[in-house]
Design a binder for these strands. Structure first.
Lengths: 141, 141, 141, 141
DNA sequence: TTTT
DNA sequence: TTTT
């Protein structure tokens, strides 16, 4: 099991790219997450984490997220290595976003907004032809 | 291990009470949480969960939360039994809130607000005379 | 957002059923989860939660789980209503299992076991023809 | 909000240290966490994450955990910087363990074991003179 | 109605 | 018994 849940703000607009061999969409950005406990009277502390989203979630992120937006990311931790030009190996720990939620509605209530008709969250899970899993009224017990 | 994380809105103002024997503060409310997957073309579905907060977190909730407010609750699931007047036993599953976060800032950005100086989150964990646990620059390795 | 993570033991063998209209597999069982904090010198306290798994996860649970087995369940909380024979409405809160993990290997290490070749975990997410999401070496950055 | 939940095995015995200025106990180790989805027919993939525990949880980890032990860690993600001897700044992402659970009982059932009388889990939260938070029978509603 |  |  490997779960990460973060609430924070994008430090920049997300970057959309595509995988070289399979042209899979990848979206990446950095999330600023405030710490809760710090030394008394100390100024606020913030951690910055690299987030990576794939496939449908990548498209969602690149379309609906911008710098400063407050979101909740549910995903998993992952480690990646890369070698710099001096041949030195670097380890980087990233959060792979599996679900993304808006954590605030920027617009005042009542004001029309094109976003009203857009999805509020997305996940890696299938959405077309999806067999209902919340099949409550048919529960056989 | 027993963890619950919910994002949703209060359906009413929270209720503050005190335990009979030890006068411990308890705050309770109901949280409306929208479902993510439903059958195609079906109307939105929502679950309603009873939330209970104790001690400092109870005081925080009763002070800063109101009907309609969007929050994130981190806590644990718990079961409680009570017997009705016919002597029938009932089982109820509640979420004990251990941490509470605001999930949106109602006020427009830039506008002065007394809340700017109030805590944005609270937990059951101690806060006075608290030995720092984020003691980074002193890490002995 | 709606996440639940529990570690505990099955109180009975799981029950496998099928939905009436769509014949969707549903597996249900009860999970005993020990509490961590109780009053000093008090006996251990345990909560019992109803767990429901659908589709592939239902088949996994009914095949690999038995009474007493220790597992980790990752899922979401859900509420369901049913009316008893006196027409009284009842509310029940269940955990919908989205991922299931074994939390201990019963057999001693080194001993051959048919389970060595069976899945250790399953989720609602697709597994056939699955486009890799851990496509690290192809990352375009 | 910042939550991480990992299940995996220690790659080495944990290392216990003490902070220079305040002599606070810190325990660190590396956790091997298997991935769930990998490309078809590919060999198993594993991520390795640095874990840091403080105070009481540090003492628990150093006392009860060893290389190979399977545990569940609940905590938070944190970033730390350090400068190497060439003055280059490095960023490292660590998991601060707030709660630690055993995920398997190594010994066969029935065999006496000193561990039977030791704590099965520990957290940063206070344990002495602890006002009960599971004060069920006194609930004023 | 409960598991180890 | 429900919120936006």
């Amino acid at each position: 099991m490997n779960k990460v849940i973060l609430m924070g703000r994008l430090t920049k607009d997300p970057e959309m790219r595509y995988t070289n061999t399979n042209n899979i969409p990848v979206c990446s950005f950095s999330l600023a997450v405030d710490r809760r406990f710090s030394r008394q009277n100390e100024e606020k502390q913030t951690d910055f984490f690299p987030i990576v989203a794939w496939n449908k979630n990548a498209e969602f992120c690149s379309k609906y997220l911008q710098k400063g937006k407050k979101i909740v990311v549910v995903g998993r931790l992952q480690t990646r290595t890369w070698d710099d030009n001096e041949g030195k190996r670097h380890y980087i720990t990233e959060v792979i976003a599996e679900e993304t939620y808006f954590a605030e509605s920027k617009k005042a209530e009542g004001s029309y907004n094109v976003d009203d008709y857009s999805p509020m969250a997305v996940s890696e899970q299938p959405s077309e032809g999806f067999v209902p899993i919340d099949d409550d009224d048919e529960l056989p017990f």
